[in-house]
Amino acid sequence: MLIINELKERLEQLVKSEDGNWAIVVEDLDKQDSLSINGKHQYYAASIIKLPIMATAFSMADQGLLCLSEKIKLKKVDVVGGAGVLQHLSIGLELTFYDLLMLMIIQSDNTATNMVIDRLGKKQIQATMSQIGMLHSSFYNKLMTVPVQLEGRNMITAHDVSTFYRTVVEGKFSSQYACEQMIDLLKRQQIQHLTAYFPDIPIKHIGQQPEWTFASKTGSVENLYHDTGVLYKRDRTVIINVLSEGCNQNKAIRMINQIGKEVYEYVKV
């Protein structure tokens, strides 16, 4: 049986052979065991910052400060590049706030993200990160925009991202309903790398539960590739966070694929 110390040794050998800087945190919530490789090293957050943004939205909805069904109109000034479909749609389109959250998470839509940020406010997002315990992470800026006076950068650590997932999985943020909704959104993720080598086991009967599900969020900019999430396999729940910088895209994604495979091998026994 593969124990977590052996998994750590395997992962250390993997990233040792690759260029760039890597951080990996794995938390086995059932065995109450964990491993950390550079878990407190700060990385530029890229789209991983969308996790506390999402949490802020559900918390404010719980408090009656916003309604997830309220509609927001897409304006020309909102449109930015990068990931997402909204930049290609018609100005004046109205979307519910929940739809914007959906696009922000499952397509990593940057335009949707900035519209969400405008509605929430920077201070509310910062307060959420503090409340969750993301003490070595920071949020300052919208995505795909560069302020004239840069107050700071959006930064994360693998340890803090793991804290975020653990808090949500255990239903300890805002409300159990909010946590359930967030995990549901994350399970609909359309961009994944950690699961590339997970087995594709077909569902034979209607209503049958899949062998595994993964609630996740990726983030990437040039030479920086992250994949993070929660693996659910039968009665096991394991948090996996991989952050990297200074990497070639193809090599980095292959490495993340391999890390996911190693963690799945650990979980399946």
Results as ranks from 00 to 15, higher is better:
residue 14 L to A: 08
residue 4 I to H: 08
residue 49 I to T: 00
residue 236 R to N: 13
residue 79 V to S: 05
residue 56 T to Y: 01
residue 211 E to M: 09
residue 33 D to M: 11
residue 231 L to Y: 01
residue 182 M to H: 01
residue 20 G to N: 01
residue 241 N to T: 15
residue 243 L to C: 14
residue 241 N to P: 00
residue 160 D to Y: 10
residue 77 V to S: 13
residue 258 Q to I: 06
residue 191 I to Q: 07
residue 231 L to A: 07
residue 1 M to H: 12
residue 246 G to T: 07
residue 213 T to Q: 15
residue 244 S to P: 08
residue 124 Q to R: 15
residue 204 K to M: 12
residue 252 A to F: 04
residue 224 L to V: 15
residue 70 E to I: 03
residue 2 L to P: 04
residue 40 K to W: 03
residue 267 V to C: 12
residue 73 K to H: 02
residue 81 G to K: 04
residue 178 A to I: 01
residue 158 A to F: 11
residue 56 T to L: 06
residue 171 G to M: 06
residue 22 W to G: 02
residue 62 D to A: 13
residue 228 T to H: 03
residue 260 G to W: 05
residue 65 L to E: 12
residue 259 I to C: 09
residue 85 V to M: 08
residue 160 D to C: 11
residue 47 S to C: 14
residue 203 I to V: 08
residue 56 T to H: 02
residue 3 I to Q: 14
residue 207 G to Q: 00
residue 1 M to F: 10
residue 84 G to N: 13
residue 237 T to H: 00
residue 6 E to D: 15
residue 10 R to D: 12
residue 48 I to M: 11
residue 132 I to E: 04
residue 73 K to C: 12
residue 104 M to F: 05
residue 229 G to C: 12
residue 161 V to S: 10
residue 14 L to Q: 13
residue 74 L to S: 01
residue 137 S to N: 06
